[in-house]
C-alpha cells in the first residue's frame, strides 16, 4: 500500500510577478481540478482572493506572508482562512535579506503569534532557508511557537545546495518538534526532486511543488513520475502532465529568463 503524501502547490506564488490576476484565478481553478492539496498564493487583493475561493472547490487556499506584523495584519483584515508565515531561520536570511537581527526575529515571531492567537486562521510556519540554519536557533524559534495554533511546519531550501544527507538530517531534527512536516526544495542546481523525495521518505507529509519547476521549485510532473509507485498524492497524474505542458507552453520565455537569472546569481554565495 502506498503511503499518503500531499502536494502544496506554489506556482501562483512563485510566478506572482508574471501573471495577471485574471490568469491567476484561472490557474487556481485548474490546479484544484487536478487534485493538489493546497494552493499557496501571494498576498493579493480581497477581490482576487474571493474570486479564487469561488473556483477552488476541494483544495485549501493559503496566503504567503512574510514575518512582518504589518503584512500579517493586512492578511487577517482581508479575511484569509490559512496563512503560510515565512520565518527567516538562517542568519544570512535574517541579517542580509531582512536586514534585522536574531532578537528581532524572536520578538516579531511572538508578535505574529499574538496576532494569530484570537483567530481561526490555519497557520503553516515556513522555515525559510532552513538548510543553512543553526540547529539550536531553529529549535529555539520553533519552541516560541508552542502557544500558537500551528497546523504544520515547512522547511524551505532557498539556496538549492542541500545534499541528500543534509536534507535527511534536517527532516530528522524537525520530526522531533512533533508537528506535521513539509519540504520545499530549490531547483537552482537540479537537486530539488531528489531532496523532496528524500524528505518525503524521511517522514515529511507535504511536498512543495510547482508546475514546470517554475520559480526554482520542485517540478510537480517529475515528482509524480518518479514517486508514483511509492506515494499516493491523490492527484490525477494525466491531468497534471497536461496542465504542466500547457503551463510551460504559455510561460516558456519567462521560465528561460528565470533560469538564466538564477544561474547568474552565483555572487550570492560566499567565497
Amino acid at each position: 500500500m502506498k503511503a499518503i503524501r500531499h502536494i502544496t502547490d506554489t506556482t501562483l506564488l512563485n510566478f506572482a510577478g508574471f501573471m495577471p490576476p485574471k490568469e491567476r484565478v484561472e490557474w487556481a481553478g485548474m490546479l484544484d481540478a487536478i487534485g493538489v492539496h493546497e494552493i499557496v498564493m501571494p498576498l493579493c487583493s480581497r477581490r482576487e482572493l474571493a474570486a479564487c475561493a469561488q473556483v477552488i472547490h476541494t483544495a485549501k487556499q493559503a496566503v504567503y506572508v512574510r514575518m512582518e506584523t504589518a503584512q500579517l495584519s493586512k492578511a487577517l483584515r482581508m479575511g484569509v482562512t490559512a496563512v503560510f508565515l515565512e520565518i527567516p531561520i538562517s542568519y544570512p536570511m535574517i541579517y542580509t535579506n531582512y536586514r534585522k537581527n536574531k532578537d528581532w526575529a524572536r520578538k516579531t515571531l511572538l508578535e505574529c503569534g499574538e496576532l494569530l492567537a484570537n483567530t481561526d486562521v490555519v497557520t503553516t510556519l515556513v522555515l525559510a532557508d532552513a538548510s543553512r540554519a543553526e540547529p539550536c536557533f531553529l529549535e529555539s524559534l520553533v519552541q516560541l511557537t508552542a502557544g500558537m495554533r500551528v497546523d504544520k511546519i515547512v522547511a524551505k531550501d532557498l539556496m538549492g545546495i542541500q545534499t541528500l544527507s543534509a536534507c535527511a538530517e534536517l527532516i530528522g531534527l524537525m520530526l522531533t518538534f512533533g508537528y506535521d512536516l513539509g519540504y520545499e526544495g530549490n531547483d537552482r542546481f537540479g537537486l530539488s526532486v531528489a531532496n523532496t523525495i528524500q524528505a518525503l521518505r524521511m517522514g515529511a507529509l507535504y511536498a512543495g511543488c510547482c508546475l514546470g519547476g517554475l520559480g526554482g521549485g520542485c517540478d510537480l510532473r517529475r515528482l509524480l513520475q518518479t514517486t508514483n509507485r511509492v506515494f499516493d498524492y491523490g492527484i490525477n497524474r494525466k491531468g497534471a502532465e497536461q496542465l504542466d505542458r500547457t503551463f510551460k507552453q504559455q510561460y516558456r520565455s519567462e521560465r528561460m529568463l528565470r533560469r538564466q537569472d538564477s544561474r547568474n546569481a552565483d555572487s550570492c554565495f560566499p567565497g
Partner: peptide, 13 residues
C-alpha cells in the same frame, strides 16, 4: 529519476 546530480554530489560528499 531526475536525481543524477544529487546522487553524484552525495557520492562525492
Amino acid at each position: 529519476c531526475y536525481s543524477a546530480t544529487s546522487l553524484t554530489l552525495q557520492w562525492a560528499m
